[in-house]
Structure formats: C-alpha cells, structure tokens
Design a protein around this nucleic acid. Sequence first.
DNA 1: GCCTCTGTTGCAACCGGTTACATGAAACCG
DNA 2: CGGTTTCATGTAACCGGTTGCAACAGAGGC
Lengths: 349, 349
Amino acid sequence: MARKPVTIRDVALRAGVSVATASRALNDKRVVNAQTRARVLTVMEELGFTPSPAARRLSLGRTLTIGVVVSFLTRPQAAERLRGVDAVLTDSEFDLVIYNVETVQKRDHYVATLSQSHRTDGVIVMSLPPSEGSAAVLARATVPVVFIDVHAPEIAAMPRVVGDDRAGGALAARHLLELGHRRIGFIGDAAEDPFGFTSSRDRQSGLVDELARAGVSIPAEWIGHGAHGRYESRELAHEMLGGAVRPTAIVAASDTQALGVITAARERALHVPDDLSVVGYDDIEIASYLGLTTVRQGLFESGRLGAEILLAEIERRSEEPPVAELAPELVVRATTTAPKEGKDEVKGG
Amino acid sequence: MARKPVTIRDVALRAGVSVATASRALNDKRVVNAQTRARVLTVMEELGFTPSPAARRLSLGRTLTIGVVVSFLTRPQAAERLRGVDAVLTDSEFDLVIYNVETVQKRDHYVATLSQSHRTDGVIVMSLPPSEGSAAVLARATVPVVFIDVHAPEIAAMPRVVGDDRAGGALAARHLLELGHRRIGFIGDAAEDPFGFTSSRDRQSGLVDELARAGVSIPAEWIGHGAHGRYESRELAHEMLGGAVRPTAIVAASDTQALGVITAARERALHVPDDLSVVGYDDIEIASYLGLTTVRQGLFESGRLGAEILLAEIERRSEEPPVAELAPELVVRATTTAPKEGKDEVKGG
DNA sequence: GCCTCTGTTGCAACCGGTTACATGAAACCG
DNA sequence: CGGTTTCATGTAACCGGTTGCAACAGAGGC
C-alpha cells in the first residue's frame, strides 16, 4: 500500500537542503560538499527514494531508451543478437524496448515513427531491410539508427553491422572443394521474400562464385529456394536427393535449413556425412550439439557491436557512418567429409 | 537536421487555440467542438507533431511501460511467451521493456527494484521463481506483478499463469500406458538448479504418480537429471539405453531434452519409435516438424494471458489474485508407438 | 580592513504534456 | 427579459526532476 512516491523534494526537506543540492548529490556533481552529499544520500536511502525516470527524461530532454525493431523473435539468430544488445545496454542507463514486427506494414510503421519521433534516443533494426521508399525517411531521422545484418542500397549512408555473406558462402565452397566435392547443391530462402532479406542470396552467390573459380558449377536443379524453415528445406532436399544423380554435398543458407537437409537425408537412409556432406550457416546454439559443420557469423557479437555503435552515435554523431564488418569463420564439425564416390582429388588417410 | 521538436504549444499557437484545447483535441475528450478538433488535428499533421512520451508519462503519473523479466531469451519457450506478451501490448499504449536475466543476482535485483520503483506500471516475471526472501518484497510491491510459469510458495498471493505440469506428466504416462509400455524412463532438469525451476520436477511426479496408479514404477537408474540442454540429455539417455535392460519409452521434461534422447537413440541404432518411444514437453516450433509426440502447454497463449491479466490489474487491482491455469494437451505424433517386445496389453491392428 | 576569488548552496525557470477550475457565450426557462 | 444551464475554451497549476544564475561565506591577497 505504499502509495506515496517519495520525491526529491521530500528528500531535500528531510536533509535540510534545497532540491537543487539534492539533485546534485544524486548525480554526483563535483560541486557538492562531501558531507552534504553523504547526508543527502543517507536520507535517500532511509526514505527509499528512487528518482522518477519520466521526470528525469523530461528535464534532460533525452528518453534514455533505445528501441530494437526485430522480427521473428523466435528464431535463434534474433534472440542471440538481442542478447548481445542487452549485454551492452544493461550496463548503461538505457532501457531496451522491443518492437516485434510480424508484418511488412508494421516494420515500415516502426521504422518511420521511431526514427522521427522522440520516443527513443536511438534505434536498432535487426535483419529487416527498409522498404524502398524509406531511404528518405531515414535520411531525416532525428535519432541515430543502426542496422544489424541488413544489406540494402537504402542504408548505404547508415551505421550498420554486417557479416560478409559472400565471403561466408565462399568459405563453405572452399571447404567442400578441399574435401573433394564437385557435386554441390544449395538450399536457401525464397527469392520473393516480402521483407527483402538478402543474406541467403549473398551466401549463394559467394558459394557459386567460389565454385566457379574452381571450375565447378551448380546445375539449376540443385539450387532450391523456399520459405525459411526446417520443413520447407526438408522438402527441397528431398527433391534434390531424389534425382538420378544427386549431389555429394549440400550447403544451406542457415543452420535451421541445414537441419531440414539432414532430416531428409536420414529419411532417405543416406548417412551424413558419408553419403552426403551438409554445411549450415550461423552457428546457432544447436549446431555445436548436432555436430553441424557451419559458417559462424558472431550473432551475439553483432548485437553487441550494434549497441556499442548506437551508444557512440548517440553520444556524438559521426561524420562517416560507422560500419562494422564481422568476418565469417568456418567451423568444421561432423557433417562434412570427403565424398565416397567420384573422388576427383586424392585424399590421404 | 530536424532539431526542433514540435511541442503542443506550437500546435496551439498555429491553430489559434490554447494548449488545453489542443491537448483535449489530441486525446479526443468529448468536450471539444468538432470543428476545433479537426483544425487542431490538421495542424498537428502539418507540423508533424508527436507528443512527448516523457511529458505525457510525467503528467499522467503513469509510466506507460511494462517490464518483462526473462531469462534464457534464446530458449524457444521464452521467445514464444514473449511473443504472446508482445501481441497484447502492441495494441495497447504500453511499451515493452525487457530485462534479460542471466544470473540469480540480477534476477533478485530486478524483481526488487521493478516491483518497488515507479519505473514501470507493471511487471511480468517469466519462468523465474523468486528467491526465498523476496516474498516480503513482493508483498509490498507498488505495481502489479504477474508470474508466468512459476510455481513457488512465495507467490501464492500473486497473479499468475501456470500450466499444470503434474497433469501434463500424467498425460504422458497415460498415453504410454495405453500403448502398452511398462518400462518407462524419465529425463529432466537437475534438481539443484540455481534459479529453482520446478516444472521438470512436477512433470516427473505427475508421470510417476500416474504410472504408480497403474502399478508401474520407474527404477532409479531410469530417472536422469541434468542441466537443461540437448547435449546433457543425450548423455543421460545414453546411460539409460546402455544398460542390460532398457526402457521402451522415455519421457523428457522438455522438447529440447527429447531431442537429445532421440539423438542418443539414433547413435545407438535404435529406431524411434519402434525400438524406443519418446515424449517431449512444450510443443515448441521444432516439435511438429520433427514429428515429436509431446505435451503442449500453450506458450504463446501463456504470454498473452499474462499480459492481459497484468493490464487488468493495472486498470484495477483485484481482491483475489487472478490465476490462469492452462490445461496441458497431449499431441500425438510420430515418436511414440506400441513397444515391440513385452506387449503386456493386447493391441489391435 | 577591504576586495577578490573560490567553493557551496538556494532560487526559480524549464522540460512538454494534462486537467481542475474559471470564464464567457449561447440556449433554455418561466 | 433576467436567471440558470450547457457547452466550449482559456488560465494556470502541476507532475518531479535538472540546471543557469545569483548569493553568500570563508580564505587569501594587498
């Protein structure tokens, strides 16, 4: 029933000082006398005083809040990045408010209102490319906006954290080539994705280009696109593995999709990796457990970096938009090995 | 460079009215003349006015914010519940700020400060039992606190949303008994969990009691406890399946752990469900894809309900703490079937 | 002893909304 | 036609902090 919030005036009264002094004591400005400060702080303790954030925000003219626009909260990638953001903000004075987006309309709405209004001191947009028209909106954003895992011409001038998806695709290619694979398939997201995700496409082209450099090409029927999910990728893998000639390795655009491939293989009594090598992407938590060979892209790290960049931008807008690039890293585990048949390369052991 | 936030006074000036009228027009109080309101709203549009949340909060004396204390954001259960909460709040005037907890200290800190201070209008605590001492803290909470998925004597008087874990365990038991299983194992969380989770324990006792009712008991070596995770449960399953006599079915305290069991079975060349039936718990997204028989406990729904209860409590504190109980539901898929050997029951087909 | 400088503190304005109360005009009443 | 309602609007206080500026005391300089 403690229905009487203690204000700084109560504190001042009890401590026998003015509210100004109380406030200064609270925010440890140099100017207050050490004894006075001690007395004020003691009184605050006694009264159980906690400053009202709303009042603080209003008088400071800062919201002390940062907004994170995120979709597919249940995807491990998103949650992992969010943890990274949280890790930074938890040590700061900022609150983390999340805007979960499940439709394109909501995305555009949030990007527009948050970047203009004074609801937040800064915004992080995760994995959501802006719609075509929003470049203009972003250009006159009143608060800094940082993009994580977004590649799009609209944000060329925006601060961001990206992974090099093309390089990641190339890593997978090189790994498989070194193992001796020549018949390689790819399974990724649908091209006509409503949100305009690009990472799957880039991973694919990184893979394809690197293979081409070695004189290996992927036939059209070994490239599968479908909605992001285990189920869909399983179906695609089934098609691919059901053909007369099948690939000896499949690269998936995400670990989630790699799981679908593995399931399909199992259902066809194909042993992974002996009959089929599988490479994922992301290195989500489950990957290490399943022994999945994958391309790690520092999810937690990307969240951490994004938050740090944002805080720095809030502190002082930089001239050039800071861009952090996370280098992908190949993690070799148990789902890849040399192909059983058609070994074009001699392998020792 | 829009560095001049438009205030309601600007609007009032331009529209030729007082700030009071402008404010009333904004919040569509009945008292304003329709023409006046229209004029004011037009001006707001023209000037791109958005009310300052900080000022609103301060003068309303409400934070328009609800806090969610959550741990293990990356677990699908948590993310799914969070989505449920978000779905409710997105249509309300409340912001959702998350407090991610990764240590017991942080949990206690948040529960204490959030429930006392006036930082939020209400708090949702997810899956985190309060520490022993915090009953007193909670009793004098200044804002409503709703617990989701928490069973603990400390919160007997608090609003909450719970699943009936005991009933869920019993459902799994009945299902396996009906299929003809008599040799049943269980794998759940470690007893000495630092956060004091109880759901695993309750699911276990629901299972054990229901089996006992049918005259079936579980030998000690078929009960495994370990840290919540696929890897740990795989290890436990290996122990259990490596014995001279092995169970024909294993119930796991979560889908995640069930996955570990399935992996262990596969590694031992045991076919699921023919050689081993597996039952999970939660019905997370991946479960339906994998065809896992499991006990659904409405994760999204629990988040939704919790948020609704909280909003209602904020509106008006109820005398009796509202308690919503979600009935568990058995979802039979492809990982359970009648045992091959030792059929004690005659099964048709 | 008077003046200046430095270290503390208080006064009061301010942030940008909301709202109780007062005011004034129009409508209604007998 | 004066008095009472009713409706629409304005005035100003208030929410609870922060902070520029003024004031004041004591120390130091001459």
